[in-house]
């Protein structure tokens, strides 16, 4: 699957396509693609589609505990949006020979490509709104980058709808995070506790730092426009001022000397999954981190198995 770097340097077609997309050229047809372009594009859409679907088992437990009917509807509506996004992405994948039905219902849960941020089912409504505020913001930054920069025009166009709807999730999240911050001491404590858990998860959404990243085809073929660090910076520049304006403490700040936002810790750090606590004094290696990401949280397989088997149970409402 992976092509060695020298192969691409030696293959004039690959080089020609890279140079073409670098000038802003957008592809409209599968026939215009090289093998390597197709690989990185399909891989990107595949992961994005899986991430849309896993929002369902992640968000849905909060439907049970959300306080009012409006809140239940808000979560259900967000899930419906996300599945609509998944449908569009799978539709794109079908042009590359994927079969959506078998992809959704016949793959083993371990094969799903998910990110840690979406692998912890929400325990209550506060967790859902905090997750929309910080997590959907992170997701939005990646999908906006694809809409603005992706060299495959059909994907870029399809993300217009996605991003339009994600803005609702983010603003819903911000409004209710602020509300619960001001509602009572208990709800404020719960908001802070949830942000403490989610902030490093969301910062890690953008992946490894640029200087350690070995796979660079997404940028070389302009499937994406911004690097991991650039997108992380963009995310920080939105969530840090928001948090500060509300009073929520986050492990990041603006560094005037460097002229950018920086994390107060050096990733990766150890996460106690059971307690949902980060140990800032315990740094782990990137090798360990990649292993953890690859395996997924303990909720990953049961959550996806539930989607596949449609075992929603009678206790959903």
């Amino acid at each position: 699957m992976a092509t060695a770097l020298k192969d691409i340097q030696e293959d004039p077609r690959e080089r020609a396509l890279q140079e073409k997309v670098a000038t802003g050229y957008q592809l409209e047809d599968v026939e215009e693609m090289t093998d390597r372009y197709k690989d990185v594009l399909v891989n990107t859409v595949h992961i994005a589609a899986d991430l849309e679907v896993v929002t369902l088992p992640t968000y849905s437990p909060a439907i049970k505990t959300s306080p009012t009917l409006e809140d239940k509807i808000a979560i259900a509506a967000a899930c419906q949006d996300e599945l609509g996004h998944a449908q569009m992405m799978y539709r794109i994948l079908e042009d590359f020979g994927y079969d959506t039905h078998s992809f959704l219902f016949e793959r083993d849960p371990e094969e799903w490509r998910t990110f840690q941020m979406l692998e912890f089912p929400h325990e209550d409504y506060i967790e859902s709104v905090v997750s929309m505020c910080y997590g959907d913001r992170a997701g939005y930054i990646t999908t906006v980058d694809l809409e603005e920069n992706c060299s495959y025009a059909p994907l870029a166009r399809s993300l217009r709808k996605v991003n339009y709807e994600e803005t609702f999730h983010v603003s819903h999240g911000e409004r209710w995070t602020k509300f619960f911050w001001n509602q009572s001491d208990d709800s404020r404590r719960r908001v802070q506790e949830t942000v403490d858990f989610y902030f490093p998860l969301c910062a890690a959404w953008f992946g490894m730092p640029d200087d350690l990243k070995t796979r660079t085809d997404q940028l070389a073929y302009r499937v994406r426009g911004a690097s991991n660090d650039e997108m992380r910076q963009k995310w920080l520049s939105r969530v840090v001022p928001f948090s500060e304006s509300v009073g929520i403490k986050v492990p990041a700040h603006y560094d005037a000397d460097q002229g950018k936002y920086v994390l107060d810790y050096e990733a990766p750090i150890y996460l106690d999954e059971e307690k949902r606590e980060w140990d800032y004094s315990r740094q782990i290696t990137w090798k360990e981190q990649l292993k953890i990401w690859k395996k997924g949280s303990k909720h990953k397989v049961p959550s996806i198995a539930r989607v596949i088997s449609e075992e929603w149970g009678k206790d959903l409402w």
Partner: peptide, 17 residues
């Protein structure tokens, strides 16, 4: 190591489509 699913949904593609 594949997870055994209790009730994997069987889809008759021809009928479904």
């Amino acid at each position: 190591m594949a997870t055994k699913l209790k009730s994997r949904k069987k889809i008759d593609q021809k009928r479904e489509r």
